[in-house]
Design a protein around this nucleic acid. Structure first.
Lengths: 176, 176
DNA sequence: GTTGAAAAGCGGTGATT
DNA sequence: AATCACCGCTTTTCAAC
């Protein structure tokens, strides 16, 4: 894991933010292209991008995969409630649940719900098994309420260009 | 947008699945390395990866950005309920909400809740404004319940290697 | 932190099996 | 599908600023 616990609070300059924004849009953009876009030398760009990754600003670069195409057509968001709220239970959950097959994300939240788990499974049966085997049947877990996902939409992410609106019907696809 | 509405149901062979898995782990892996890893020629690999993108199996490749580092330290999951359930309201929501700044994901779900919206904002104030301006104050929306996210965890995604367990304390970082 | 230049490596095409 | 030859571009290092 890249070090970032203490020094994530380092402010990024405009160039860094531009690089982050470009990589969030298209994580496969070449270093040369990134350098051109933000107006710095390629070698500098290389150093900066490496630094962004080492500092944990960019945590990783991942393909966004259509679950249907890879045999996991049943997607769900599962709201999990804990009883007792022992710290060790949360820690175990935090450590283990994201590693389970098909888990796309897990969110520890405030309020009546303690965790939301976003998962993609092979079938309705597999979903039920996932919930019973890995969530309900887990120390500290009181209840799990499953909502099937009809449609899953990616947002534009953390970065929005300051001048970024006005192209309503525009298509914005990365390196067609 | 790549064409995929009808032909997403094309079965992928083992090689395709291996490529998808590698790209899900490290979206910046070079074509040469992908080819080596899955044991095919580079040119073949190029064709296959392109095809995966065109068919929409790989929908995009994006940097996973730490919201804290880019000035959006307040992350939330917002459960939205609709009244009336008019189709046009859902369609408008589906089209517009993912475009709003800071939105990471939006999920149209079954059950008591209609949508979950995952968002990262600059501050608690900005979060309140987001909910009031863009969710509550929207045709068809009856209620929005906001849960602050204490911790956001990425899962391993849709692909898990068949032989993939046993490295408990192992570090798994892409291109250190 | 930044740079340009140079070496090494990679991406993408087309012809061939 | 796979291979090979090929050329242009890209990545990465390095001395220097």
């Amino acid at each position: 894991m890249p070090k970032n616990p203490p020094d994530r609070v380092k402010p990024l300059d405009e160039t860094d933010l531009a690089l982050v924004r470009l990589l969030e849009q298209d994580g496969r953009m070449s270093n040369a292209m990134l350098a051109r876009e933000v107006g710095i030398a390629e070698s500098t760009c290389l150093v900066r991008v490496r630094s962004l990754r080492e500092r944990g600003v960019v945590r990783g670069i991942h393909a966004d995969v259509d679950p249907v195409a890879v045999g996991r057509p049943v997607e769900a968001m599962i709201a999990v409630r804990f009883g007792g709220h022992r710290r060790s239970h949360f820690e175990q959950f935090t450590e283990e649940v994201p590693q389970l097959p098909g888990v796309l994300g897990a969110y520890h939240v405030s309020g009546a719900i303690d965790y939301y788990v976003h998962v993609a499974t092979e079938s309705a049966d597999a979903l039920r098994d996932f919930v019973l085997d890995h969530l309900t049947n887990r120390p500290g877990v009181l209840h799990a309420e499953t909502s099937l996902i009809f449609e899953s939409l990616r947002g534009r992410g953390t970065m929005t260009r300051p001048d970024d609106e006005g192209g309503p019907e525009e298509e914005r696809e990365e390196r067609a």
